[in-house]
Amino acid sequence: MPEVIFPGPDGRLEGRYHPQKDKDAPIAIILHPHPQFGGSMNNKVVYNLHYAFHRLGFTCLRFNFRGVGRSQGEYDQGIGELSDAASALDYLQMMNPNAKSCWVAGFSFGAWIGMQLLMRRPEIAGFVSVSPPANMYDFTFLAPCPSSGLILNGDADRVAPPAEITKLADKLKQQKGITITHETVAGANHFFDPGMETMIARVESYVAGRMVETTR
């Protein structure tokens, strides 16, 4: 899988780009957890999400936020990281101008960034939000949430308490015109260790179902 370097708002950003042969394949970007707590594009959840989308026929890009790995810049409280994500999506779209749909997936801090990107980019057709830290960050910007998506968490998560994630999902479910699916993985902690295979299987099932709907 090619290593790529693409321009970001605060310097170069490092990524891993995994194209499909079909020029009109859907595209997906995958966003990693908090940079100041060891988060990177090589996080196991991010890595597995990347390959799950690729198995489903997506051209995928995951990348390091500013200040992580070979990406230039410094941590910016989520503000700059959102700009990084927008630049990554710009790059992915430039490389795939004929993509038939666009998705965003994020884990933990990356889920928070991904949901903000969703609000800014109307072309995003669906999202996967894994372990969104609803106890740490304000998600009230999702008013209304513009796209249907999947929220997933472990029921043994001590970083992002399940009750807070359920509250977020229930609030989003009340909005008209979209469908929010919320699933929990029994026995899984924040990092899905154990529970990774179950979580990824549910992501694949959900996204595959959505893609079938859009082709009818």
Score class of each variant (00 low, 15 high):
24 D>Y: 03
40 S>C: 08
23 K>M: 08
27 I>H: 00
30 I>P: 08
32 H>Q: 12
47 Y>N: 09
57 G>T: 01
66 R>V: 00
28 A>V: 08
17 Y>D: 14
24 D>W: 05
33 P>R: 12
49 L>W: 04
68 V>Y: 04
21 K>E: 15
41 M>R: 01
33 P>K: 13
67 G>C: 14
58 F>M: 07
46 V>F: 05
45 V>K: 02
65 F>W: 10
30 I>V: 15
55 R>P: 01
16 R>I: 13
61 L>M: 09
49 L>T: 04
17 Y>P: 02
27 I>R: 00
19 P>D: 01
34 H>M: 09
24 D>V: 04
16 R>A: 14
68 V>A: 09
42 N>E: 13
57 G>I: 00
61 L>I: 02
29 I>M: 07
56 L>V: 07
9 P>R: 03
71 S>V: 11
11 G>P: 13
21 K>T: 15
40 S>D: 10
64 N>F: 11
67 G>Y: 12
63 F>P: 08
37 F>T: 10
20 Q>D: 09
48 N>G: 06
64 N>R: 07
61 L>A: 03
71 S>I: 13
44 K>E: 12
47 Y>E: 08
8 G>C: 02
42 N>Q: 08
19 P>F: 00
19 P>K: 00
51 Y>Q: 07
45 V>D: 03
22 D>M: 02
61 L>F: 04
62 R>T: 03
28 A>T: 11
43 N>R: 06
23 K>C: 02
22 D>C: 05
56 L>S: 05
37 F>N: 13
8 G>N: 02
12 R>T: 14
32 H>I: 09
34 H>D: 12
69 G>T: 11
30 I>N: 06
67 G>Q: 12
32 H>F: 10
40 S>A: 11
26 P>E: 09
44 K>C: 05
14 E>V: 04
65 F>M: 04
65 F>A: 04
48 N>E: 10
70 R>P: 07
55 R>W: 06
70 R>I: 07
52 A>C: 05
18 H>I: 14
37 F>I: 09
66 R>S: 07
10 D>E: 15
18 H>S: 15
12 R>L: 15
64 N>A: 07
13 L>P: 01
28 A>C: 15
63 F>G: 11
43 N>G: 08
21 K>F: 06
43 N>I: 07
32 H>E: 12
49 L>G: 05
56 L>C: 10
54 H>L: 07
50 H>N: 08
25 A>L: 13
51 Y>C: 03
16 R>S: 14
62 R>H: 03
23 K>N: 10
38 G>H: 09
71 S>R: 13
53 F>E: 02
64 N>V: 08
61 L>N: 01
16 R>H: 11
45 V>T: 10
49 L>N: 08
14 E>G: 02
23 K>G: 06
23 K>H: 03
36 Q>T: 11
58 F>Y: 12
11 G>M: 12
24 D>N: 15
43 N>D: 14
70 R>G: 13
20 Q>E: 14
35 P>D: 01
49 L>C: 08
